[in-house]
Simulated assay, not measured.
Amino acid sequence: GMVACICVLGVAWLGDTFVSGHTKEIKDFASQTISQYPALLAVVFFLAAMLLYSQAATAKAITPTVVAALGISAANPDNAYMLVASFAAVSALFVLPTYPTLLGAVQMDDTGTTRIGKWVFNHSFFIPGVLAIVFSVAFGFAVCGIF
């Protein structure tokens, strides 16, 4: 029980402290990247979700910046499809092996097959999670192209 408390509270505190200290830089990076390379919207969502540990926090922090960078408005909704197609990338909570649910899964696995490797990105959830996001974003762009 104490391991769970430390994982949940410690990780949330660490993530909030880091992001609160660098919110301006994260928004500036998103705005500059999207204004120069609109096709990287999913990558920006992915990187922000890694740091923010929340889909809602990522959408709240990055979407207004992205909307302004892409020039989306009620009068000019041309690039709005990119937001819809790329939104699946805000599910990158699993990338850093510090998310409490991921740590809980590793802790509760008695077989030893769910583990965190020697490197930061070397864990059991990385490849399946990244593939799911890549396929979801690709499917989103394909469906947006149809409609």
Rank of each mutant, 00 (worst) to 15 (best):
N79L: 15
A80P: 01
T17H: 15
G1Q: 10
L103A: 03
D16V: 01
H22L: 10
L102V: 05
P38V: 06
S124N: 04
L47K: 07
Q55V: 04
Y37S: 14
L51C: 11
L52T: 07
G145A: 10
I62F: 09
A80N: 05
G15V: 13
M50R: 02
W119G: 05
C7K: 07
G117A: 14
S91A: 12
V11D: 03
V134K: 09
G112Q: 11
Y37V: 08
A48L: 06
T98E: 00
A138R: 00
A68E: 15
T58D: 12
T101K: 08
P100A: 08
P128N: 13
V19H: 04
F121G: 06
W13K: 12
A88Q: 10
T114E: 03
T98L: 11
N76P: 02
F139C: 15
I72L: 05
C5G: 00
I26W: 13
L96Y: 10
E25Y: 06
V120C: 11
A12L: 14
Q32R: 14
A132I: 15
G21W: 01
A56S: 11
A105K: 10
I127C: 06
G140T: 02
A105N: 12
G10N: 07
P97D: 02
I62M: 15
T58Q: 11
I72G: 09
L131D: 03
A61H: 02
S31C: 02
F29M: 15
T58A: 10
